[in-house]
Computed example of a mutant assay.
Amino acid sequence: MARRLFLHVGTMKSGTSYLQSLWWQNHRTLAERGLLLPGDRRGVHFHAATEVCGRADVRALMSEEHRGSWDRVRQEAAASDTDVLVSHELFSRATPDEADTALRELERVSEEVHVVLTARDLSRQLASSWQQDVKQGSTDTLEHYWRRAADDTGRTGEFWTLHDVPAILERWSRGLPDDRVHLVVLPGPGAPRDWLWRAVCELTGVDPAGLDDDAQRSNDSLGLAEVEVLRRVQASLPPESRHLETTRFLKGFFTRQVLAGSGDGERFVLGPERHAWARSLAEDQVADLRTRPWHVVGDVADLLPPEQPLPGRTPEEVSAEEVADAAVNSLVGQLLRSHEQRDRVRSLREEVRRLRGSS
């Protein structure tokens, strides 16, 4: 039976990809230091979260190898006598009943269950979450995305399911002692780059000395023109091409290998009205969190956006010329990469023929 089991449940766009990259880059050394990540790759925890949260669309595409990941994660935890870490932001989607079931199942394979939620200020969350939605296939403008969240006064829709910090912790804390529910608040801009990594290392009792702290894979943001190119590509896809495999291709290869770097990298801002809305809602969340008994790493005040909106342009202000330039640059980049790959294939074929001829 595991000693302590840390379940990191989100929030999305709060450094989760950064943390998961470092955890898996170091997973062998972490196991030697007393922190086991069940499974042999990052995707195991994704599939486990999918099964916990009943994502039928994703489960339908899961191979036999991937099905049963949640059971295997718990089996590895049960067989361990060290601390265990399971992390994926999709756990934040769980309903109260799904979270309660998962917690009770984890309690049967560990001496202590700890829930960890990372979070950052709502203005950054809103902007990043919209961009993530576009990467996942949405064609909404930021205006439409924000308006849907703002009109959802009951906070029952997708945005609030993933980003209402007090509500997520409420769902994932039932039956747990207060000191085993941890909220890690990311500081604002200007904090040390490795602040989050060191904070979670301390929380999980891991000595970070000598660990690789250079994340090889992160969920990098697109610039102002680049995200608009992606949104328009998504909107131009024929209906029969709108499925999960296409989304994975666009989010992965197309975004990272083709589109990223095609614009000037200008970051967009929310604009005064959206910023004021985010600030007001964040004030409510912070006031709520100050009354809760959960363990906080950092300062809940850092969940507040700045009092004044940041200077800059909104996505609606990007020009057609900028979008066209980014699209052309991405095509040129892909053309050059294709030529390089073709030359590499030709070189390998010639090497194969040479080796066969000399044998």
Rank of each mutant, 00 (worst) to 15 (best):
A215E: 10
W146A: 15
S80G: 05
A199D: 08
H295K: 10
A215Y: 02
A31H: 04
V200F: 06
A209I: 00
L196H: 11
T247W: 12
R356H: 10
G190C: 07
L106I: 02
E317T: 03
G137I: 05
E32N: 08
Y145T: 05
P309C: 05
T247Y: 07
P208D: 05
R74F: 06
G137T: 08
L310N: 02
S63D: 12
S69K: 07
W294F: 15
Y18V: 07
L224W: 05
P309A: 04
F253T: 14
A77M: 03
D151Q: 15
W70E: 14
Q131L: 09
A149C: 03
T204L: 06
R217E: 09
L250W: 01
R342D: 12
D213Y: 00
S123N: 11
L224F: 01
N329G: 08
F268C: 11
T255Y: 00
C53P: 08
L270A: 14
H114L: 05
W70V: 09
E158N: 13
G54T: 07
D179E: 15
D71Q: 13
D207G: 08
R41F: 01
S218F: 02
H295S: 10
D264K: 00
G205Y: 00
V109I: 02
V109L: 00
W130N: 10
L281Q: 13
V345T: 07
V227A: 04
D140E: 15
S63N: 09
D212P: 04
L176H: 12
L90P: 00
A127S: 13
E226W: 05
Q75M: 09
S236K: 09
T139V: 15
A102H: 10
M1N: 05
Q20K: 08
E158L: 13
V44H: 04
G154D: 14
E307R: 12
R198V: 00
Y18M: 12
V73K: 09
L85R: 03
G357C: 11
V286Y: 06
R108T: 06
A119H: 08
V52I: 14
E317R: 10
E105D: 14
G263N: 05
Q216A: 06
Q75I: 00
E64H: 07
W23I: 13
E32Q: 13
Q341I: 01
W24H: 15
S330E: 03
V300P: 14
V297E: 12
P311V: 05
L355Y: 03
V286C: 05
H45M: 12
D83I: 01
A276D: 10
T141N: 04
C53V: 14
E228F: 02
P238M: 04
L35T: 09
W24R: 02
A49C: 02
H27R: 14
D83R: 04
H8F: 04
S110H: 02
V200K: 02
L103D: 02
G252W: 11
R349K: 11
D152R: 09
L237I: 10
S236R: 12
R353P: 02
D83A: 03
L281I: 08
D152S: 09
F249D: 09
V184A: 13
R108K: 12
E266P: 06
T82N: 10
S17T: 15
G210P: 11
A278Q: 01
E76L: 11
W277R: 12
L126R: 06
L331I: 10
D325W: 07
T16A: 06
E273S: 13
R248K: 15
G34S: 10
D179Y: 01
